[in-house]
Nucleic acid binder design. Sequence first.
DNA 1: ATGATATTTAGCTAAACGTCGAAATGAGTC
DNA 2: GACTCATTTCGACGTTTAGCTAAATATCAT
Lengths: 99, 99
Amino acid sequence: MNGIFKALADPTRRKVLELLRQGPMAAGELSDRFPVSRPTMSAHFNILREAGLIAAHRDGKSIVYRLQLSVLEDALLSFGQLFGIGGTAPAAPREGSSA
Amino acid sequence: MNGIFKALADPTRRKVLELLRQGPMAAGELSDRFPVSRPTMSAHFNILREAGLIAAHRDGKSIVYRLQLSVLEDALLSFGQLFGIGGTAPAAPREGSSA
DNA sequence: ATGATATTTAGCTAAACGTCGAAATGAGTC
DNA sequence: GACTCATTTCGACGTTTAGCTAAATATCAT
């Protein structure tokens, strides 16, 4: 859980996830869309992969990353539910209920 | 947006938000629930406040923090919607759609 | 086996982060 | 005004993070 939020805390990594939403993409192709070096991007991929947010598989010379949407979904939803945000809202005191 | 994710990246700060969900609480009372010093907690409060996630107001000798649920809600919801997570799902390719 | 391409690992620097103790500020009380 | 309580600011320290270049690894083609 913490790894996911840590991974999400960096704008570059969030953009990677957004790009991957359109479909799997190779590391190099992904890197080309960011103004940082490939090693730096590789480190970002590692963090996202360790958090479970993306999965890697080799395809010939390339390594293709794909979004693990369900992991992101579970994290966002279960965190949101702690606050009654999103789909099913539990009985929770609202902000201005006693002011 | 980035400030919110940065703020959410720390477990202590996430727990502060969870505690505040039950209602406003003074800085000291809040600090008593964590195994770190008051100055440290004060720094966490600052980060949460600068992100807009909590609001402070003085009440006598104490400073009372309250959760800004709508800010958290907006952030979570709008980020989630980028991925078709949560309430209204836009037309988005699902993970295993072409595998 | 050699060479070319794609990606990562290794080693580094600079900045940011979380933490602390001590001192300073703000608000009530006597 | 002086004192006390609640909280924050300040300055320091060790750790983590994002970034880089250069070198290593893995795969494919010749």
